[in-house]
Write a protein that binds this DNA or RNA. Structure first.
Length: 512
RNA sequence: GGGGGCGUAGCUCAGUGGUAGAGCAGCUGCCUUUUAAGCAGUCGGUCGGAGGUUCGAAUCCUCCCGCCCUCACCA
């Protein structure tokens, strides 16, 4: 609703619908009037491109007194001095000061400077010089007002690293990310880190012979993770389809087909709660390597993360939430049940049985929803008591099979699976296992999941007959990995919330 | 859903019972090397909403709305 134009009418009351998202009528009208004046003076606002401009960064780094340059960007501040004015111009590469002087501009052009506002987008041409206070500045000889900002952007003032009046309201920052990006240097930095991380993942895997593939986002049977799916309806097919909760079962079909190293980076969708670590749609890297196992995947992951950290941050040591974390390999390895024993003193080994686990859960004061299965108890103990303490990167290994319906059993320990999850900074960033390639065992695991579903576990897996059929044609042994890319970016950028690393995070629909 | 916090001018915020403030932004002047430009003047708020207590409410009480955090949920 606040996307509509502010109401006309009363010029004394700010339009309050939409709260701080709305400019007052008076400010809007003033800017409209300036637009009219600019157009009347022959300025074709909104109507032309500004080709052949150079990046602002080039003006700063390639500075030479008297160098002629064409620059374009948004005006972030303007300081008028009667017959002259200074303004700060910013483009994607940096900020530079421009100097506008009546007798240096073509006849009549300086009059348009008074109709410039913070937020306007201009193209300028002129020569570089240094002011008497030592600042590199463009002396403008030609000015083009390209776009007028009719609303005042929330650009604070700043000097050095101190800032005034910046946009702070979290709701506005998330709903109108463009304002956040305009106003907050740190927001821009985080999304650049994100871009580099994803590029780094691709470069790392491509260099190791992995093929990037794309598998269905709309799936007839959602699988590969325990999560509630979003449902949608395909009209022509007269069928329900599900937005994928994971690409896993399709990627494994590719192993059956003969691909040996594949990965996919893409969006998964889970119809579950939203928190600082969860967004309904999130980006996952999944990869599979035939003939490998979870040990090989551990080495791949620790190497990938530390090398990306070096590329993006220039080192593999990071400060996350005030703690120093070293990402250089090798990362610690710790069996899950031992980690739980270390933190809680309780032994949740599967052979001790569900009743014993339930008793332990009671002693630990864990609140567990029905059905209170062994798998859930272990999971609760892990998430509640162990994960938050895992700051330095660590692989927790050997998960109960009951928690891991797609993972291969450990040799000699049939109730445990060759699985690990990687944690750092208190965040779960990856999940991996030696993939189960035994179609008979897989069918039994699915049947156990279906039994759990019948008991009310809506997140349990469904039967996927076609996937079983694929396994029956023979899938090579393989190691598989899933990485929460958003969380990895959180870790590497120091973000406190997943919403700070997703450009347009899911929020409650705006209404009023 | 439980618990906590917040909501005052376009922005950032003061103001805890006496009738609404500052800086910045805006507007009007002056100012041709400023940079949180400066100087002078000026506009702007049903203090999230409704009800209540009170001689008097931004302030106290109740309910509601919105957002954030946290717990639960999310292998």
């Amino acid at each position: 609703m606040p996307l509509s134009r502010p109401r006309r009418g009363s010029d004394r009351a700010a339009v309050r619908r939409g709260g701080n998202l709305m400019e007052s009528d008076a400010l809007y009208e003033q800017r409209l009037e300036k637009l009219r004046r600019l157009r009347a003076a022959g300025e074709p606002v909104y109507e032309r491109a500004f080709p052949d401009r150079e990046p602002v960064q080039e003006a700063i780094e390639g500075f030479a007194e008297g160098r002629r340059m064409r620059l374009a960007g948004r005006i972030h501040s303007i300081r008028g001095h009667g017959g002259s004015a200074f303004a700060d111009l910013r483009d994607a590469t940096g900020r530079i000061q421009i100097y506008l002087r009546r007798n240096l501009l073509p006849e009549g052009v300086f009059d348009r400077v008074r109709d410039l506002d913070i937020g306007d987008i201009v193209g300028v041409e002129g020569t570089l010089f240094v002011t008497k206070t030592g600042e590199k500045t463009l002396e403008v000889r030609g000015l083009a007002v390209l776009s007028k900002a009719l609303r005042e952007p929330p650009l604070g003032k700043s000097k050095d690293d101190r800032h005034w009046y910046a946009l702070a309201d979290t709701e506005t920052r998330y709903r109108r990310r463009y304002l956040d990006l305009m106003a907050n240097e740190d927001a821009r930095r985080v999304f650049l880190v994100r871009s580099r991380v994803i590029r780094g993942i691709r470069a790392f895997l491509d260099a190791r012979g992995f093929a990037e593939v794309e598998t269905p986002i709309m799936q007839p049977v959602p699988g590969g993770a325990a999560a509630r799916p979003f449902v949608t309806r395909h009209r022509a097919l007269h069928a329900d389809l599900y937005l994928r909760v994971a690409p896993e079962l399709y990627l494994k079909r590719l192993l059956v087909g003969g691909f040996e190293k594949v990965y996919e980076i893409g969006r998964n969708f889970r119809n579950e709660g939203i928190s600082t670590r969860h967004n309904p749609e999130f980006t996952m890297l999944e990869l599979y390597e035939a003939y490998a196992d979870y040990g090989g995947i551990m080495r791949l992951l620790e190497e990938m993360v530390s090398s990306i950290a070096r590329d993006v941050l220039g080192g593999d040591s990071i400060t996350f939430r005030g703690k120093e974390i070293c990402l250089s390999p090798p990362w610690a390895r710790l069996p899950l049940l031992q980690a739980i024993r270390d933190r809680t003193g309780e032994d949740l080994s599967p052979e001790r049985g569900e009743a014993e686990a339930l008793a332990a859960a009671g002693r630990l004061g864990l609140e567990i929803e029905e059905p209170r299965t062994y798998a859930k108890i272990v999971d609760e103990a892990l998430k509640g008591r162990v994960v938050p303490a895992l700051l330095d990167p660590v692989f927790l290994t050997e998960y109960p099979v009951a928690l891991s319906p797609l993972a291969r059993r450990s040799p000699g320990q049939p109730l445990l699976a060759e699985r690990f999850q990687a944690f750092a900074g208190g965040l779960e960033i990856a999940n991996a296992f030696s993939e189960l390639c035994d179609p008979l065992d897989q069918r039994e695991r699915f049947e156990a999941q279906i039994a759990a579903r019948r008991l009310g576990d809506e997140e349990a897996h469904r039967m996927d007959d076609d996937f079983i059929a694929a396994l029956e044609y023979g899938m090579p042994p393989a190691g598989g990995l899933g990485v929460g890319v958003d969380r990895l970016v959180m870790l590497l950028s120091g973000a406190d919330s997943i919403r700070d690393v997703i450009l347009f995070p899911q929020l409650k629909p705006e209404h009023r």
